[in-house]
Amino acid sequence: MTVARRSRRFAYLTVAATFVLLAFFVLSSSPVLPPALRPASSGPLTATVLFDGVNIVNHDTVGSAIVTNFSGAFSTAFTWTPTGSGGLTVTQAEIQLFFFGTAIATSSGQFLKFGANSYTLSSDFTQNRYIYEGVYEIVATLSNNGTTLYSQGFYVWIQATDHLTIINIVLILLLILEVYEVAALGRMKIPKQPAAAPPSTPTTGAPPAGAPPSATTPPPAAPQGGAPPGGPSSDSSAGDTSDTTPPSGGT
């Protein structure tokens, strides 16, 4: 198999694997409303959410993402007020981190305190700090037994120390590998040509200086009825080193 064919096959396999991974992401994702359809706030209550002390209201675009990292635990403080006259019971607070429209990290807290109007959710995504970074959407949700009462999305810019994450390293290695693959297309090994035939030596002449004595000394005569001292192999090698017959035509 040639180098070009091998590299082409590898490229096809890599592309196929990438698309399989993307298809897996798409197919395994639960149906999620796009951000435009996600209600900024549901009717039954109004709420204020502080992500690590920062109000999330003004961070609903990528450009205004809250800069953070996963090096430690962080808190999300929910404070809500029912809009109607009837009391509302909030039983769960949750935040979800989205990637490709899929929740890849979730932190939730369930509680049951009648009349309460605040809750602080403590989350810890430190297990992901060496996996990925970038701008992600987080959706903060308050619900009552599965019924969403409040939902608000905001953006965070997760920064890793020195961009040192597993995905970054793999992607950079992949970039280098692909550049090398293309650069290798321009290199083709030229096979070494067999050495040119040596100039023919005259059949009757002095041996060249420095020639081994075996080239000029005839092999010892084999005893009658027995094998030669060196065995058959030495006999054949003696025939190979004979200088009476040039390897290729000469005059």
Binding site: A4, S7, R8, A11, Y12, T14, V15, T18, P34, P35, V62, A65, L97, F98, F99, F100, G101, Y132, E133, G134, V135, Y136, E137, G153, Y155, W157, Q159, H163, T165, I167, N168, L171, I172, L174, L175, E178, V179, E181, V182, L185
Partner: peptide
Amino acid sequence: SGAGSGVVFGIALVLLIQQFGYLDFSS
């Protein structure tokens, strides 16, 4: 071969740009 490598390069590059925070692939 070059096109195959380029496709993989492009996908890896855009994912890397997203990792550095210049693109939003989250939602």
